[in-house]
Design a protein around this nucleic acid. Sequence first.
RNA 1: CGGGGCGUAGCGCAGCCUGGUAGCGCACCUGCCUUGGGCGCAGGGGGUCGGGCGUUCAAAUCGCCCCGCCCCGACCA
Length: 480
Amino acid sequence: MAESPITPRDKDFATWYQDVVLQGDMAEPAEIVKGCMVIKPNGYAVWEALQRELDTRFKATGHQNIYLPLLIPQSFLQKEAEHVEGFAPELAVVTVAGGKELEEPYVIRPTSETIVGHFFARWIQSYRDLPLLMNQWANVIRWELRTRMFLRTTEFLWQEGHTAHANHDEALVEVLRILDLYAEVAEDVMAMPVVKGAKSQSEKFAGALRSYSIEAMMQNGLALQAGTSHDLGQNFGKAFNVQFQTNEGRLDYVWQTSWGVSTRLIGGLIMTHSDDKGLVLPPKVAPRKAVIVPIFRKDEERSVVMEKASALAASLGAHLDTREGLSPGAKFFHWERQGVPVVFEIGPRDVAAGKMVIKRRDTGSKEIIPQEEAPSRLASTLEAMQKDLYARAQQRLQQNTVLANSIGEVEEILRDVSAEKGGGKFVMAHLKDDPANDARIKEFKASVRNIPMTDSFDGPGKCILTGEPVDRRVVIAKAY
RNA sequence: CGGGGCGUAGCGCAGCCUGGUAGCGCACCUGCCUUGGGCGCAGGGGGUCGGGCGUUCAAAUCGCCCCGCCCCGACCA
């Protein structure tokens, strides 16, 4: 029995994560470029699945895709004061092109609000041009000091939505519609439960009036911000002079929103469902939902088994593992690490009996079934697995969400939590939204994750730091 | 940028302290054999030892400089 290439979670969660990503053929560190990764076929196919799910929903809600330049004139970033301050430390800048020093350097986009501002100003004249609902699928670069594959890489893939509206109410509706859309994809497609909420003022996007997020809980109890939706108010409208004429003939600045999810979702997916045997993919995002591993000894068995297996693969839409020279055991381990939801085994005994073995990735359960039932059993197994993965993740989230009524209690619970050691919790406490309070939380390296949209606890209470009345508990946790 | 670790075959590593023939496991190639959870046996190919300079009869090994990667912290989708 060979040693598993995957470090167990309870030994070292961070190493486990790396092992799962590598062994699952999801990605590998690029090494030649600092903090960048190569997204490999299995990982990229998951991204494509997420893209499809998201893009369909964007289109259904009236958004159109566009593509903007990768390079942004440096002066653009400086037009919105908070924005430049927020992003300045992590910018990569092009200063030389065509062998000459540029008069004005270009920034490689960390996000496109500024360039969007510029073009919105050209495209919008009248309230009849509003709302303007755009989305871009793109790559961005943020020069982060600490990177982890999918969770935080120097370059990453994402979508950024950018919209302009005639008034604040409409913009807010958009912001929350997208937050709901993100939560739906996270929960229904990725089987990853999330908490929807508003970011605290100190955690909001640089240049926004208010940011909203979905926060997921990883298996080590750390929070992962899985998506954000920003109410930009008129900040960028004013900075880029995006004015329109109202139906009363008055000039006003547009109200903008922006929102995004990134390849980080894949990191969240991995840390939500995978186990010590490797990657576990929810059926809805799995590039290969089912694989058939044929088993035979002699040549005459081989031809019989392969014939049957091919026919079944075709009718099931399953991938048939025809690789030569590998034992069935080696193939089982391979597909297990790839996160394939269902693996069928078929050997001489099964062919003779008209049966096959169906095996589920998440539970590891094996069952012998009649071949004619395979299509319906595959469908029901995929459905059950999708549901069960969500239920397990939901249960973990609930079990690791605790109430605290003093700052000492919060600190006690979270102080020794780390990505490697685990033990993280979502600590629900009454806390006034004030940067000074966020700062106190940060003293023990936790943060206010968000202020939930719906209160599922005990309603109003007194701030654990200032005693001021607040209307609900906020989520405090250690985060990626 | 601070602390720690590391750079030797595609991958994972030993060798370095105490200088003297470039090693092991996996992977790869050929053949035989096997196949219901990582088959086995035999044979084989593959290296400017991260780079530079120095010490020395002789450097993977000792010294100096440089480069890169990973982990931990401060910054973040």
